[in-house]
Write a protein that binds this DNA or RNA. Structure first.
Lengths: 331, 331
DNA sequence: TTGAAAGCGTTACCAC
DNA sequence: GTGGTAACGCTTTCAA
C-alpha cells in the first residue's frame, strides 16, 4: 500500500479510502487507481480485519457437502451472505459432532461475523465455544428445544408422521421404514421416531424398521435395505424411506425383483430431490425447501448483524419451514 | 493473549509458544493451558497470519458445488489440504468466468497459500492475478495447453471419442449427442467436440446434436433433450449424453415413451455418478475419478508448498487422470 | 526455557 | 479532502 501511495503521490490513508470507496477527489482517485493497476496491488484482508476489528467471514457447517439438500442450503445461505460481502468459510462435519467442534474451534480463530450450523445436537464444547464467541448463530434443519441463538427448520418427526398418515389414507396398512444405521444423523433418527410414533398412534401394528448404511444415505443403500425388509416382513405393502436417495434405490430393486411400484409395494421418499420427480415411477415424497432454509438462515444472520445484536441481546428466534407431502406415482 | 499471559504469570511469547506447540517447560505449559481454558481464549488467526506473513488458507473454485463430481473433487482436495492444516476457502463460479475472476480477486485478498481452479479457460484478468500472486496454482478437470502452473485432468474430447468407438463396436450406427446449451461449460463442449470428431472419423454420417439446458446439467434436462433428438432424427439407435444426469433423464423418458433401453435405443452417460450404477437399466458411462482429481491436485499443491517452489520456479506439471468406459446394461 | 521489542499491513481517529 | 499517528493481536528475532 505504501508503494501505491508513493507512486500516486498520496498517503496510505488516501489509498485506503479509495479501496474502501470513501469520498476522495476524483482526480486523486484516478491516480490511485492507476497506481493500483500498475502494481497489481491486492489489499491484504487479514491486515484489514485486524485493524478494523471485524472480519468479512461467515462460517457455515453442514454434515455433508455432497448431499444435494445441504448444498442447496449452502446456495441459499451464500446468496444472502455474499450480498453482504461476507466470505463463506465452509466446512463439512461428516455427521461427526466431535469433528464439528474441531471445525467450529478452527473457524472461530478467523473471527467470523456469524455462523450457521446444521442440526440441534452439538457437543458441550461446541455450545460453549459459540456462546462465548457472542456472534449470531443459526441452527438449521431442525427445531431445537433449546437453541444456541436462532434456528430455521422443521420437525422431522412430524413430517414423517404426516407421511405415515398419507400412506394410511391411501389404504396401506403394513408400512415399513428404511433408515440409516448411524445414530449420528439426528434428522434421520427424528424421522424414524416420527414413523414409530405414528404407526403406534394409528394402530398399524409393530413398526417394521430396517437400518442400513452410513450417512449420508445414498441410492445404493436402498436396494439392500428393501431386501432386508422383505425378508423379515414379506407382506409389507408400503415402505417409507429416510431419503429420496434410498427410495430410488429401493424402487430400482423392486424392478429387479419383478415387483411393480406401487401396485405390489408402495415406496415413499423424503426430501423431494430431483430424482424423485424424474424417476419412473415418480416418487411420492416430503418436499422441504432446502434453499429456503439457507436463505432464511442467511437473512436472520444478516439482520442480526445489522441490528448489532449480540447473541445475548437478540430475542432467540425460531423460524419454522413448511413441508408438504407430494403425492406422485410411487405411493 | 495478554490476559492469558497475565493469569498464567508468563509473557505473551510463552503463550504463543504453547499454542504453536513449541518447547515450553511442562509446568508452564500446564499453567498456560489452564488460563486458556478458563478464559475460553481463541487465538486470532488473522493477527497470526499478518505477523508471520503466511496465512493458512487454500482457495478452491469449482463451477458448481451441487454437482456430485465437483463436490467429490472438493472432498479429495480437502483431504490433502486439511492434513496440512489449511483452511479451505471455497467458492463456486456458477460456470461464469467473470464471476470466477471476481472470486479469485476476493480470495487473493486473504493471501491463500495456494489455489485450485476448475478448467483451463479463464479471463485474462484471472490469469494475470494468479501469475502475479506467485502462489502454486492447479487447474483441474482438463489438460490445458498452456497451464498457469500445474494441472490435473484428462482430455474430455478423447474420452467422448472413446465412447463413440465403444458404441460403434456394439453395432450402433446412428448415434446422437445430448449436451448442454451453454458454451460456458468447457468440459461439456470438449465432449461434444470429441463426439463430432469421432463420428466423422468413423464415417457415421452427420453428427446429431441436441443442446438443451444450462449447466450444471441435471436429470430434468435429459427427457426434453431426448424428445428433441427423436423428433429431428427418429431413426437414432444410440444416444450419448454429456452427463449421467441427463442420461438418466433420457432413460426415464424412454420408459415413458415405451421405448426399451437398450433394445430400441441405447443410452450412454458420462461421469459414473451413483445413479448410473443404481439405475435400471444400469447406465454405460465414462468413469472419471473425481475424488482422485482433487486428491492429486491437493498433493501437487502441498508438495509445491513444501518444496518452497514459487510458481515461477516449479517445473510446470501436468498430471493425466485415467478414465474408462464402463459397460453396463444401457448401451 | 523465557522475555522484550519491533513490526506485519491495514484502518480509526483526529488534525489540518 | 487529505495526511499523520496509533493501534489491532499476533510472531519473529534476539537477548538473557
Amino acid at each position: 500500500m505504501s508503494d501505491v501511495a508513493r507512486i500516486a503521490g498520496v498517503s496510505k490513508m488516501t489509498v485506503s479510502r479509495v479501496l474502501a470507496g470513501h469520498s476522495v477527489a476524483l482526480a486523486t482517485r484516478v491516480r490511485v487507481q492507476q497506481a493500483i493497476d500498475e502494481l497489481g496491488y491486492v489489499a491484504d484482508a487479514a491486515a484489514g480485519a485486524l485493524s478494523s476489528g471485524r472480519s468479512e467471514f461467515a462460517a457455515v457447517l453442514v454434515p455433508s457437502l455432497a448431499s444435494s439438500n445441504f448444498s442447496d442450503t449452502v446456495r441459499g445461505l451464500s446468496g444472502a451472505l455474499e450480498r453482504e460481502g461476507l466470505q463463506l468459510l465452509l466446512g463439512d462435519t461428516d455427521y461427526d459432532l466431535v469433528r464439528e467442534e474441531r471445525l467450529v474451534r478452527s473457524m472461530l480463530r478467523y473471527q467470523p461475523r456469524c455462523i450457521a450450523l446444521t442440526g440441534s445436537q452439538h457437543t458441550d464444547g461446541t455450545r460453549q465455544l459459540l456462546e462465548r464467541s457472542r456472534i449470531p448463530v443459526v441452527e438449521m434443519w431442525d427445531l431445537p428445544g433449546n437453541p444456541i441463538d436462532m434456528a430455521v427448520g422443521f420437525s422431522n418427526a412430524r413430517a414423517a408422521r404426516e407421511m405415515v398418515r398419507y400412506l394410511k389414507d391411501r389404504g396401506y396398512r403394513k408400512i415399513g421404514f428404511l433408515g440409516g444405521a448411524s445414530d449420528l444423523d439426528r434428522r434421520g433418527l427424528e424421522r424414524l421416531k416420527g414413523y414409530q410414533q405414528e404407526i403406534r398412534a394409528q394402530g398399524l401394528g409393530e413398526p417394521r424398521v430396517i437400518r442400513v448404511g452410513e450417512s449420508p444415505i445414498t441410492m445404493s443403500h436402498g436396494g439392500p435395505a428393501l431386501d432386508a425388509l422383505l425378508e423379515q416382513w414379506p407382506d409389507t405393502d408400503a415402505v417409507m424411506c429416510v431419503s429420496d436417495m434410498s427410495a430410488f434405490g429401493a424402487i430400482m430393486q423392486c424392478h429387479r425383483r419383478g415387483l411393480s411400484v406401487p401396485h405390489d409395494i408402495a415406496v415413499a421418499g423424503f426430501g423431494n430431490f430431483e430424482v424423485a420427480d424424474c424417476c419412473q415411477p415418480a416418487i411420492t415424497t416430503v418436499s422441504v425447501d432446502a434453499v429456503g432454509i439457507g436463505a432464511r438462515a442467511g437473512e436472520l444472520l444478516v439482520s442480526a448483524l445489522a441490528s448489532g445484536d449480540s447473541q445475548a441481546a437478540s430475542e432467540r428466534r425460531k423460524v419454522t419451514i413448511d413441508y408438504t407431502v407430494i403425492s406422485r406415482e410411487s405411493a
